[in-house]
């Protein structure tokens, strides 16, 4: 299915938690049950909030950032979490690089 459905579900999850009182924040399973059109693989990644897989699927980095912050991760955690998705080496040297 479309990565949009994954992203919509994750966005709705983050928004619902943001707007709920601290002791009533919904879990992802509750949000994911609302009828998003997800494949089995997408549903598994969403329901487990598997950031590495979600990132590799193409989830928008602003959502990855929101989820990571929501889960209490810090900047040092990102590299190991998303290790399988490091960007390729630069093909073009940006004009501002001196060396």
């Amino acid at each position: 299915m479309s990565i949009y459905q994954v992203q919509k579900c994750l966005f709705d999850y983050l928004r619902a938690r943001e707007h709920a009182p601290k002791d009533a924040r919904p879990e992802i399973a509750e949000i994911a049950a609302r009828g998003y059109d997800l494949t089995d693989e997408e549903r598994k990644a969403v329901e487990s909030l598997d950031l590495g897989t979600l990132y590799a699927m193409g989830t928008h980095p602003v959502l990855i950032n929101g989820l990571a912050r929501n889960m209490g991760y810090r900047k040092a955690d990102y590299r190991p979490l998303l290790a399988g998705s490091m960007p390729p080496e630069r093909k073009v040297k940006p004009r501002w690089l001196k060396s």
Binding site: H60, P61, N65, Y78, P87
Partner: peptide
Amino acid sequence: FVGEPRIGDIDEDFERWF
């Protein structure tokens, strides 16, 4: 960098040039 492995990196060469 936001929500990706390079979070925390800052390209100072870019910033000075910009």
